[in-house]
């Protein structure tokens, strides 16, 4: 239960590396390009190049490796699952092993490892973005990319505002649920044992107070925002307007170049 306080959203770790300093929009575009590259590549050489790029960024980002890999833990199961599915169900190539009616084929193993590699690249590169970009910067970038949509009636500013508030309040609500849970445990509540129906029923003493307090919070926050003259996105300015520097354009260009090379040479 004590982990609640440790959840830093998207696991962002402040720092001063090149990745930290890039404009969030540039990072977004570069990541998208990089993901395209991951799916284009289908030779070992291609993967080697991608691996070199990713590990370079990982090591220069200043993120402790143990912290990085701890965050990836849930993904290990997905990788294992993907690998097993391919090994047992993908047919083709030569038969390596025969277990009764089932067979394990060489193509299955080959494809399984390929898929796992892709997942690794996807997850590592995406977490490099979330680890080095503050939630606000991410929301700012999203708001920027959504701006064209606001002409179609999509409430771009409101969506970004909602995300900011959600990010702001997740740790607060986590702390609160921990507190209420402990208060009910002190009255003998049991959140851990029993069958599914009983467990769901046991959650009532946790969920009701949580809802009550969230509504009160929402109410107070709305009043506080109104008191500070909030009236939607109209006429609002920003403390930090996003400002792209040559470095950011260069980053996007390099990412584009990598794709071009991969596509062009058929790596």
């Amino acid at each position: 239960m004590n982990m609640f306080r440790s959840i830093t959203i998207g696991q962002y770790l402040p720092g001063d590396s090149l990745l930290h300093r890039l404009d969030p929009r540039a990072k977004f575009i570069a990541l998208l390009l990089f993901i395209v590259a991951i799916f284009l590549v289908n030779t070992y050489w291609g993967y080697l190049i991608l691996a070199v790029i990713v590990t370079t960024f990982l090591f220069t980002s200043g993120i402790p490796l143990s912290y990085f890999f701890r965050g990836l833990r849930p993904v290990y199961y997905i990788m294992l699952f993907t690998l097993l599915i391919h090994i047992f169900f993908t047919k083709g190539g030569s038969v390596l092993l025969r277990l009764g009616p089932a067979t394990i084929d060489s193509y299955g193993i080959y494809l399984g490892f390929y898929m796992v590699l892709r997942i690794i690249f996807l997850v590592v590169s995406t977490s490099l973005l979330t680890l080095t970009t503050s939630p606000i910067a991410l929301t700012d970038a999203l708001e920027y990319f959504m701006k064209p949509l606001s002409y179609l009636g999509v409430p771009a500013h409101e969506i970004a505002m909602m995300m900011t508030i959600a990010l702001r309040f997740i740790p607060t609500l986590m702390e609160e649920s921990e507190k209420i849970m402990k208060a009910q445990m002190a009255r003998g509540a049991d959140f851990e044992s029993g069958n599914i129906i009983n467990r769901a029923k046991n959650l009532v003493p946790l969920l009701v107070p949580l809802f009550v307090s969230s509504f009160r919070r929402a109410d107070e926050l709305a009043i506080a925002m109104e008191a500070r003259c909030y009236r939607g996105g109209m006429g609002r300015t920003r403390l930090r307007e996003l400002q792209a520097t040559p470095r950011d354009f260069l980053a996007v260009a390099v990412a584009g170049l990598i794709i071009a090379v991969i596509a062009g040479t058929g790596l």
Binding site: I9, P135, I136, T164, I165, R168, E220, L221, A224
Partner: peptide, 12 residues
């Protein structure tokens, strides 16, 4: 307001 948590809007 009284509750500092319920009047801070942003993440920094």
């Amino acid at each position: 307001f009284q509750n500092p948590d319920n009047q801070i809007v942003a993440t920094t």
